[in-house]
Design a protein around this nucleic acid. Structure first.
Length: 890
DNA sequence: CATGTGTGGTAGC
DNA sequence: CATCGCTACCACACATG
C-alpha cells in the first residue's frame, strides 16, 4: 500500500522539538497541545494535498468565524479545493483577504470593518456558478460601515500637519482644541492618510493588541520601570559587594538621615516640557480628552480645583472647566528618571532604594556629618544638603523635585508630603511627634482608601495620626489586623523598622489586561490567553525567571453591570476571581503555561462574552541568572570612583563606623532557600535526589538540577496525560463539534474541580480530589511506550490495544502521554490512509470497549474518567480525519 | 498548628 | 468618538488534616 506523502510524514514525524523548543517538547500535559497542533497541521497539510479542482479563490486568504452553514470544516475544504488558503486566526490586520461569517456582533462588525466580510454563500455560490462572484453581493456587514473609515483618517492626519501648539499660544483658542491636538503625535505630512490610523486598536486576538495596549498603558510603564530599577540596583549592589568588603551601616537608626526624593506631579511636569506655554494653566496628562479618560497626573494649578490623579476627565472638567489635557511622553519620563538616578548615584549615598521611576529612598547619613548628638547646626546642614540636591536634580532633569528627610523611612515619606510641591522638609526625631500627630491618617504610607475609611467610620472615629497614637496599639490591631495595626501604631510613634538595605529578589511575575477585553467565544478566549502567556514568557525569559505555580485571575462582568461599561472598553463593574494551579516543575515555556492558563480560566466557567479581563501570575519562582542569594545592600566603594562632591558641601571624609553588619545585611543568607520544585513536586525529583541533602543547595543549583532533568538523556519516565489540562486543550472547534453529552462531560470535569464563579464563594465545600495541572508520580518501571510500527493486521492491533488498556487498568494507572500520542498518531494515519477506512473507526470503538471492559468498578473514578475522555478524543479525531480526508461522516 | 488557597489592600502617575 | 483600569507584594480569613 503506497503511503500518502502526508501519512508518511506523520509516521516518521518525531514529536520532539515540534516547534523548535529547546527542551521539554515532552513537558507533561503536552498531549493536549500536541492534539491541537496536529489538527492544525492536518489542515495545513490539506492545503497542499487536497486535489485542486479550480482556481476560483486563488490569492484569497480566508478566515472563517462563528457558526456557518455549511460548517467551517466543510468551507475550509471547499476553499482549499478551489485554490484558496485558510487563515486560522486573524494574525494581523492585513493578513486575511476575506472573512467568512454569517453574522457578527456589533463589536466584530466594527473590528472587521476594514475587511471583506462575506457570507458563506459567497463560497458556495461561487463554486456553483464556477466563477468568483463579486463579494459585495454577499456582504455580511452593511455598506455604511465600510465607508466611514478613510475620510475620517484623512481629516485626522491633515489636522495634525498644522502646528496646534502655536495656534493655542498665539490665539488663546478654546481649550477643547488644545486638549485634542497635542495628543496627536504625528508623522510627517507625506504620510498616506489612510495609514495614519495607527490610533486604531488592533484586534484583541492579534498579538499586536497586547503590544499596543502596553505601549499606551501608564500603569504598565510604571510597573515595568519599577521592576527594571529593582533589578538594576540589585545587580549594582551585588557588584559593589563583590568588590568591597561589607561596608558598615551607620550605627543606630535614630541618627540616620533618610531621604525620600520625588518629582512633583511627575508625568505632567515632564510632558509640560514640550508645552512650556501651558505651564501656568491647569494641565493634566491623560490619553484622551473624553469623559472616561483617566487623569494620570495633574499639575498643582489643577489640583487647586480639586482635580486629582486617577479622576476621570468628565468629573475633572466639572471642577475645572479650563483643564487642559496633554499627552503622555513615556520617553521623556524615562529620561527624567535616568537623570534623577544619575544624580542620586553620584552622591554615593549609603543606601539607595528605588521606589518608583521618579522616586527613591536614599540613606545619606554619612554624607552629612554630625558633631555630637546635640548638633545645633545639623538641621541647617541637612537643609543645605537638600537645597543643593534639589537644585542639581532640577538642572539635570529639568523638573522640580521635592525631598522629605527624616531619621527613618516613614518620617521621610511624611516629610515629603509636607515638602511638596517643589520644597523640602526635614523631620528630626526630636520633633517627629509634634509634626505628625496633627496630620490626617491618609499621610501614613500603607493606609489607603479602604483603611482610612475603616478607621474614620469606626467607633473611634480616627482621622489624625495623633488619634492613632491615643487609641493605642490594641485598638489599631482590632481595626486593621495584627501586622498593619501594629505597624500603623508604630508609625504614629514615629517608629519605623523598614529596612532599605536589601532589595528582595522577585517572588512572582505576572501579566494582566483588563481593558479592551471583549471576546466572542471560548476559542477567542484561548487565543487571547495564548497571547498573554506569550508576553509573560517573553518577560520571564528576559528576566531569567522560571516558576512552578500559576495563579489566574478573571474579571467577569458583574451580572448587573451593563454590557458596555461607562468607560470605553473598560472592564466596568466586575466580579474578580483568582485560582491557582497546583505546583509544577519550574518552567518558562509558553506551551506548558498556556495550557495551564487555559485550564484555569476554563475552570471558572465564565461565559466568554462576560470576560472583561484576564491575568496570570507565576509564583514559586527561581532565577536562572547568577547567584540568587539575597543581596541588595547598596554599598558604594568610595575609592573606586572619582568624587564629584558638588552636592555635598561638607567635604569631610565620611565616617565609616565599623560596626558589625546588621543581621539582615547582605551577607546573611535568606532564611532558607525556597525549594519550590523539589519540595512540592517530589514526583519530578530524580531517584538520586533524595540522598542529596537538598537543604544545602541554593535555589540556583536546584534550578539547574531541574533544568537538566528536563532534558533527560536516559529513557524518559512515563508521564501521565493530564486530562484536566488535556480536556481544556481540545480545540474549541472540536469541542463545539463534540456530541453534547461529551461536552457536558468535559464541562463536568471542570466543574468538579472547583467552584463556579456564579456560586456563592462560600468556603464550606469539599475541595475536589483532582487539581488541574497536577503532576502525579510517574512510575519508574520497565515501561515502554506502545508502538505500532508498520502493523497492519487488525486483530494484532486490537490485541495490542487491549493489552495496553488491560495493563493500565490492572495497575490502576492513568493513560501515559506518550502512549496516547502514539495511539492517536496511529489512528490518524489509519483514518487518513488505510484502504479500509472503517478500520480506524473500529479501532477507536475497540479502545472504547476495552476501557469500558477493563476499567471496572475497581478502578479509581478519576482514572476511569480520564480514560473515558481519552477514548472520546480518539473517536473524535478519527471522525474528523475521516471527514476531512475522505469526506466520510460516521 | 503548619500549610495552602482565595481575596483584598496598597503603591507608583 | 472614546480608550490604553499594571504589577508586585503583603496580610488575612478560612480550610485542611
Amino acid at each position: 500500500m503506497p503511503l500518502h506523502p502526508f501519512a508518511k510524514q506523520l509516521q516518521e514525524h518525531k514529536f520532539e522539538g515540534e516547534k523548535g523548543e529547546e527542551y521539554e517538547g515532552h513537558e507533561y500535559g503536552d498531549f493536549g497541545d500536541y492534539f491541537r497542533k496536529k489538527l492544525t497541521k492536518l489542515e495545513n497539510q490539506f492545503q497542499e494535498y487536497v486535489p485542486v479542482e479550480s482556481d476560483l479563490f486563488k490569492d484569497c486568504i480566508i478566515y472563517i468565524t462563528g457558526y456557518t452553514r455549511p460548517s467551517a470544516p466543510e468551507l475550509r475544504r471547499l476553499i482549499n479545493a478551489h485554490g484558496g488558503k485558510i487563515c486560522h486566526y486573524l494574525a494581523g490586520k492585513s493578513y486575511a483577504t476575506h472573512i467568512v461569517a454569517s453574522s457578527l456582533t456589533a463589536r466584530k462588525r466594527q473590528e472587521y470593518a476594514k475587511y471583506k466580510v462575506v457570507k458563506p454563500e459567497w463560497i458556495v455560490e461561487s463554486i456553483n456558478s464556477n466563477k468568483r462572484l463579486p463579494w459585495h453581493d454577499f456582504r455580511t456587514i452593511k455598506t455604511e460601515y465600510n465607508h466611514s473609515i478613510s475620510p475620517f483618517a484623512g481629516q485626522n492626519s491633515n489636522a495634525a500637519t498644522e502646528d496646534p501648539d502655536k495656534q493655542v499660544v498665539d490665539e488663546q483658542v478654546d481649550q477643547e482644541q488644545v486638549v485634542d491636538e497635542p495628543v496627536v503625535e504625528e508623522p510627517p505630512a507625506d504620510q498616506i492618510p489612510v495609514d495614519s490610523k495607527d490610533a486604531s486598536i488592533p484586534n484583541i486576538l492579534d498579538p499586536k493588541f497586547i503590544e499596543h495596549f502596553y505601549k499606551h498603558s501608564r500603569l504598565h510603564h510604571l510597573s515595568i520601570w519599577k521592576g527594571d530599577l529593582k533589578r538594576r540596583f540589585q545587580k549594582l549592589a551585588a557588584e559593589s559587594n563583590q568588590r568591597t568588603s561589607q561596608r558598615a551601616l551607620p550605627a543606630t537608626s535614630s541618627c540616620r538621615v533618610i531621604l525620600h526624593v520625588d518629582f512633583d506631579s511627575f508625568f505632567v511636569a515632564v510632558s509640560l516640557l514640550s508645552h512650556p506655554q501651558l505651564s501656568d494653566r491647569a494641565v493634566c496628562v491623560s490619553s484622551g480628552s473624553h469623559g472616561s479618560s483617566d487623569i494620570a497626573s495633574c499639575n498643582y494649578v489643577a489640583r487647586k480645583f480639586g482635580v486629582h490623579n486617577g479622576m476621570w476627565m468628565k468629573q475633572a472638567r466639572e471642577l475645572c472647566p479650563d483643564l487642559i489635557a496633554i499627552p503622555f511622553d513615556f520617553e521623556g519620563y524615562e529620561k527624567a528618571s535616568a537623570a534623577l538616578y544619575e544624580v542620586l548615584l553620584e552622591l554615593k549615598p549609603d543606601l539607595l532604594f528605588p521606589v518608583s521611576v521618579d522616586e527613591a529612598l536614599v540613606d545619606v547619613t554619612s554624607l552629612i556629618p554630625r558633631n555630637g548628638s546635640q548638633d545645633e547646626g545639623f538641621q541647617q546642614k541637612v537643609s543645605e544638603f537638600l537645597e543643593n540636591l534639589r537644585k542639581e536634580i532640577k538642572s539635570r532633569a529639568r523638573v522640580d523635585a521635592s525631598i522629605g528627610a527624616g531619621p527613618n523611612v516613614v518620617l521621610a515619606k511624611i516629610a515629603l508630603r509636607l515638602a511638596k510641591p517643589n520644597g523640602q522638609k526635614y523631620i528630626p526625631a526630636s520633633r517627629a511627634l509634634d509634626v505628625i500627630h496633627p496630620l490626617p491618617i491618609s499621610h501614613l504610607p500603607g493606609l489607603g482608601y479602604s483603611s482610612v475609611k475603616k478607621l474614620a467610620s469606626s467607633k473611634y472615629e480616627i482621622t489624625t495620626i495623633g488619634q492613632i497614637s491615643s487609641a493605642g496599639q490594641q485598638v489599631m490591631i482590632e481595626l486593621l489586623g495584627n501586622k498593619i495595626g501594629t505597624k500603623m501604631y508604630e508609625y504614629s510613634q514615629g517608629i519605623d523598622h523598614t529596612d532599605i538595605s536589601v532589595i528582595p529578589s522577585p517572588k512572582s511575575i505576572g501579566v494582566e489586561i483588563s481593558w479592551g477585553v471583549r471576546l466572542a467565544d471560548a476559542h477567542e478566549v484561548d487565543i487571547f490567553i495564548g497571547n498573554l502567556i506569550s508576553e509573560l514568557c517573553r518577560r520571564m525569559k528576559v528576566q531569567e525567571i522560571c516558576g512552578s505555580q500559576m495563579t489566574a485571575k478573571l474579571y467577569k462582568r458583574h451580572p448587573q453591570a451593563p454590557i458596555n461599561p461607562p468607560k470605553f472598553l473598560g472592564h466596568g463593574h466586575c466580579e474578580i476571581y483568582t485560582k491557582s494551579s497546583s505546583v509544577f516543575p519550574l518552567t518558562d515555556q509558553v506551551e506548558t503555561l498556556t495550557k495551564i492558563a487555559q485550564a484555569l480560566i476554563r475552570s471558572f466557567n465564565c461565559p466568554p462574552t462576560d470576560v472583561r479581563g484576564l491575568g496570570f501570575q507565576i509564583t514559586k519562582v527561581s532565577t536562572t541568572g547568577q547567584e540568587n542569594t539575597n543581596q541588595g545592600t547598596l554599598n558604594f566603594p568610595k575609592s573606586t570612583t572619582k568624587n564629584t562632591d558638588q552636592l555635598t558641601p561638607q567635604t569631610t571624609p565620611r565616617k565609616r563606623t565599623l560596626t558589625a553588619p546588621r543581621s539582615s545585611g547582605s551577607l546573611t543568607p535568606k532564611k532558607r532557600p525556597m525549594t519550590p520544585d523539589l519540595e512540592s513536586s517530589p514526583s519530578k525529583r530524580g531517584p538520586t535526589r533524595a540522598g542529596n541533602a537538598p537543604q544545602f543547595m541554593t535555589v540556583t543549583q536546584q534550578f539547574r538540577e531541574v533544568r537538566n532533568k528536563r532534558e533527560p538523556k536516559e529513557p524518559k519516565e512515563p508521564e501521565p496525560v493530564d486530562l484536566s489540562v488535556l480536556s481544556s486543550q481540545i480545540d474549541t472547534d472540536v469541542f463545539a463539534e463534540l456530541p453534547p453529552e461529551i461536552q457536558r462531560e468535559i464541562a463536568l470535569q471542570s466543574k468538579r474541580q472547583r467552584k463556579q464563579p456564579n456560586f456563592d464563594p462560600s468556603r464550606g465545600r469539599r475541595s475536589a480530589p483532582t487539581e488541574p495541572a497536577r503532576i502525579r508520580d510517574p512510575v519508574i518501571s520497565l515501561y515502554k511506550p506502545i508502538e505500532f510500527c508498520g502493523m497492519v493486521d487488525e486483530s494484532s492491533i486490537r490485541s495490542k490495544l487491549r493489552n495496553w488498556v488491560r495493563e493500565s487498568a490492572s495497575n490502576d494507572r492513568r493513560p501515559y502521554r506518550e502512549d496516547a500520542e502514539n495511539v492517536q498518531r496511529f489512528l490518524i494515519t489509519t483514518a487518513a490512509e488505510d484502504q479500509d477506512w472503517g478500520k480506524s473507526k473500529r479501532l477507536a470503538d475497540w479502545i472504547n470497549k476495552q476501557v469500558a471492559l477493563c476499567m471496572g468498578a475497581a478502578t479509581n473514578e478519576d482514572i476511569l474518567h480520564e480514560w473515558t475522555l481519552l477514548t472520546e478524543i480518539f473517536s473524535d479525531v478519527v471522525r474528523r480525519v475521516l471527514r476531512d480526508t475522505r469526506g466520510i461522516t460516521v
